[in-house]
């Protein structure tokens, strides 16, 4: 077999194939439900109601989507420039650490929130700067270095929680001292469990979209991602563009951790992120790396997680079905997107 580019893909092909990928994912979901001995339609229904069936469920889904929007944006920005930042997990924790460092009394109202957000972004950006400089200066593959940094960061967090940041009133649980009330993100509506982090995440998506479509940097990021040699030949400072992309990407990922600590949890623990950094890759790929699409796919992905938790309690199908579905969706989607652009011919 051989792949042949399609000059003008039809709209049916461009839209139909990604939809087909999602339908195929649903098919896998039903198959897994069958394997687990449950009714496939009931399982899908329970996931949907678990995610969206009540006001409480919707709020839980939106809360879960908040860090995923940030990490999804971080990945989307970096992947657009073919900068493979797989370290969003570590950058997230860098942001969470900053929220605790500045939010436990070092600063008071009204400065603590904006300053700690800024510090979080700088922390995340700094963490990605190393791997990117190693890539541009020495040609070290950033995938492996960012992945390895995730493990180093988790150990560092564990050290902080047992040492310098340990909550004296934690009764032996490894968690940090709680943030002061002034350092917490308030709820958007009183009495509803949804904090301003969600609104900030949407704002971040719009800002990234503006950067990508309305600024020189956005144009440069796309050019570097499409063909770095051509971009270099056209006189673009490719390495500078990569560094700027990294700072943006790392900063966005850090906001995920910052908003989880300041908005949701109020303290840092080593289970703050159940892999939000890695799930951000799926969120970004499903959104075809489009920043506004990230908001939609993050809510979708969060819904699958929240819905699967609820379904698992009712139907007894392991909650890990969510992770399997999302990984399947990712693989189907990258294949579907390719097939919108090329056709398979014999020979």
């Amino acid at each position: 077999m051989r792949l042949e580019p399609i000059a003008n893909p039809s709209p049916v092909r461009r839209l139909g194939l990604p939809v087909l990928a999602l339908v195929a994912t649903l098919g896998v979901a039903m198959l897994l439900a069958l394997v687990a001995g449950a009714n496939p339609f009931a399982v899908l229904g329970q996931i949907a109601t678990g995610a969206l069936g009540s006001r409480l469920a919707v709020l839980e889904t939106l809360n879960r989507a908040t860090p995923l929007i940030f990490t999804g944006l971080a990945v989307a920005v970096a992947f657009r420039a073919k900068l493979w930042n797989i370290g969003a997990e570590a950058q997230l924790y860098a942001g969470a650490i900053m929220a605790v460092v500045l939010g436990t009394g070092a600063l008071g109202s009204p400065w603590v929130l904006p300053v700690s957000a800024l510090a979080a972004m700088l922390g995340g950006a700094a963490l990605l700067l190393g791997p990117v400089l190693l890539k541009t200066r020495l040609g070290v593959d950033e995938v492996v270095t960012t992945l390895l940094l995730n493990f180093i960061m988790l150990l560092f967090v564990s050290y902080l929680l047992e040492g310098p940041m340990k909550d004296p009133g934690g009764m032996g649980w490894p968690k940090s001292t709680p943030l002061i009330p002034e350092a917490r993100l308030p709820r958007i509506v009183d009495g509803l469990r949804l904090h301003w982090g969600f609104a900030l995440a949407i704002l971040a998506a719009v800002v990234v979209w503006v950067i990508q479509t309305r600024t020189t940097l956005g144009f440069e990021i796309r050019a570097v991602g499409q063909n770095p040699e051509a971009a270099r030949f056209a006189g673009m400072p490719v390495n500078v563009v990569l560094v700027k992309t990294a700072l943006l990407s790392g900063g966005l990922a850090a906001l995920a951790g910052w908003s989880e600590v300041a908005g949701l949890k109020g303290h840092l623990s080593s289970d703050l992120s159940p892999g939000f950094g890695y799930t951000g890759i799926i969120v970004a790929m499903l959104a075809l790396l489009h920043p506004l699409g990230v908001v939609v796919t993050a809510i979708f992905v969060a819904g699958i997680f929240v819905g699967s938790d609820a379904m698992s309690r009712a139907a007894g199908v392991p909650t890990y079905i969510a992770d399997m579905l999302l990984a399947t969706a990712l693989l189907f989607m990258v294949l579907a997107i390719l097939l919108t652009k090329v056709r398979v011919v014999r020979g």
Binding site: Y278, I282, M285, D323, M324, L326, A327, T328, L331, V334
Partner: peptide
């Protein structure tokens, strides 16, 4: 992307 996808899929399959 495929490699990370396979890692996520394989890990999730084992857990499931």
């Amino acid at each position: 992307v495929v490699g990370l996808g396979v890692t996520l899929f394989a890990t999730a399959s084992a857990s499931f």
